[in-house]
Amino acid sequence: MANSVVLCAGLRVVRGGVQILSAFSARIEEGAVTGLLGPSGCGKTTLIRSIAGTQRIAGGRVEVLGRSAGDPWLRRRIGYAAQTAAVYTDLTVEENVRYFAAVTGAPRDDVDRVLDAVDLRPFRRVLTGRLSGGQRSRVSLAVALLGAPRLLLLDEPTVGLDPVLRAQLWDLFGRLTDGGLSLLVSSHVMDEAERCDQLLLMRDGALLAQDTPDALRRRTGTDDLDEAFLALIRAAERGDGDRAVA
């Protein structure tokens, strides 16, 4: 079994008085693309923020690369692209990437590399606020790629992209793992699940299942991941967890 880069044990998060994650336990494998899938509002963003160390947690443990989440040592080793494109709309694409490169201590020639990776080089002198939503989220992704992170946390990076670009980005994610990088990519569309090495299926702040796409299909006796997800939900609602589906 591969090493894990993230370990959540009994993680509990409360936001605005509501329990968002309850006793959440999961692990993320090194050198793999792990898809975090689940309906909107199930707690994907909250989980990713907990791993990034920006979410206050109410209980449990989150370990990243062997350290407690939020440890300053991790700041150079995690690339995080939040769900909303966290870039300056009143700077050009290049100015944005340059600034974050300086702040994260990435080498200067990294700017070209990450702009190429997200296919934004032709837009480098365009004001970020003038870009489409999908282009803007690619600027945010480019920033997350800066430096030499060992773990990438990408919160719905493909929302609003056309199918061609989406496929390109998933190709990129696959290539990144060849270099030993680990990725956690959230999505609420099931057809992206197929591209992942590992899946975390989430619902209502709890983990429904964690496995490879193939294993999930086998376990649920379906050949479609959507169906597999539904089967897991039904099993969970019967109260016997995902064991009964096997």
């Binding site: 990034a52 995690i78 939040a82 909303t84 966290a86 974050f100 994260t104």
Partner: peptide, 13 residues
């Protein structure tokens, strides 16, 4: 509100 501060808070700055 734009999330850039959150991003900077995860950076070694």
């Amino acid at each position: 509100t734009s999330g850039t501060l959150e991003r900077l808070m995860t950076a070694p700055l």
